[in-house]
């Protein structure tokens, strides 16, 4: 445990040194730039932001749209992946449509989505859901295909009904890999939500960042950027912990 803390602390040495160096350069030579800011200014801007109600509303808007989009796209993607994995003919039938739609960058759909939904939550949730849907679909389909064939035979020998086979064999077997898909999709959802906000949607942390940049408030922009990074890191760390708790080594096949 202490070794882990020490190891993590050691990992912070280099970034901290760089920040100190950056601050030193900024203090000695002065930064006359609209694109850069000294660390002290950024920390100040972040401090101001954290006591600002609008900042928290922006945070809520971004996290909520990312989460709703993740839930919508994730559930639809997982269910489709389950059906594709269990019924290969359906998967073959749908291969062309999937391969046509999948490479479309989600962000390229923003103009259409604006026409359909206007600005606001629905727009962002829809784009995030689209972006998350395909990777989840593909990972879950592969996971269902990868279920140990021996277990499928055990299900046949015990004459489990299709529903019982899915509930008792397929879903538990797929769950650990589904969780990996969830982690991947959660990161993607945050990226896409913020991109939609930067590109078009006038809400959330992305809009706050682009507004700060356009008003030449570099410290505020960097403060928001750091906040976004912290959110992304915290979400991933939470999911990694949940993964370790939900799927202990003892329940992994040897």
């Amino acid at each position: 445990m202490t070794a882990g803390v020490v190891g993590r602390a050691r990992g912070l040495i280099l970034p901290l040194a760089l920040v100190v160096l950056w601050q030193a350069l900024a203090s000695i030579r002065g930064i006359e730039s609209d694109t850069l800011a000294a660390p002290v200014q950024i920390v100040g801007a972040l401090g101001d932001a954290l006591v600002n109600a609008e900042f928290w509303i922006a945070t809520r808007d971004t996290v909520l749209s990312a989460a709703l989009g993740l839930a919508l796209g994730g559930v639809l993607g997982a269910m489709t992946g389950l059906v594709f994995g269990l019924v290969p003919p359906v998967s073959r039938l749908m291969r062309v449509p999937v391969e046509v739609l999948r490479p479309v960058p989600a962000i390229a759909l923003v103009p259409i989505a604006i026409l359909i939904f206007g600005f606001g939550y629905a727009l962002e949730v829809a784009i995030v859901a689209f972006a998350v849907f395909f990777p989840v679909l593909i990972l879950i389909e592969a996971a269902v295909r990868g279920v140990e064939p021996r277990l499928t035979e055990v299900a046949r020998l015990l004459r489990l009904s299709p529903g019982a086979r899915i509930a008792k064999i397929v879903v538990p077997a797929v769950l650990p890999r589904a969780f990996v898909a969830l982690r991947l999709a959660a990161g993607l959802a945050l990226v896409v939500a913020i991109t939609v906000e930067i590109a078009a949607n006038p809400m959330g942390l992305g809009a706050r960042m682009i507004l700060a940049a356009q008003s030449l408030r570099a410290p505020d922009m960097f403060a928001t950027l750091i906040w976004v990074a912290v959110l992304g890191w915290a979400i991933n760390a939470g999911l990694v912990r949940a993964q370790a708790a939900l799927f202990p080594d003892a329940q992994r096949p040897r």
Binding site: R150, I169, P253
Partner: peptide, 9 residues
């Protein structure tokens, strides 16, 4: 192959 025939979870 008992390791594959049992439910690890």
């Amino acid at each position: 192959d008992y390791a594959h025939a049992l439910l690890p979870w």
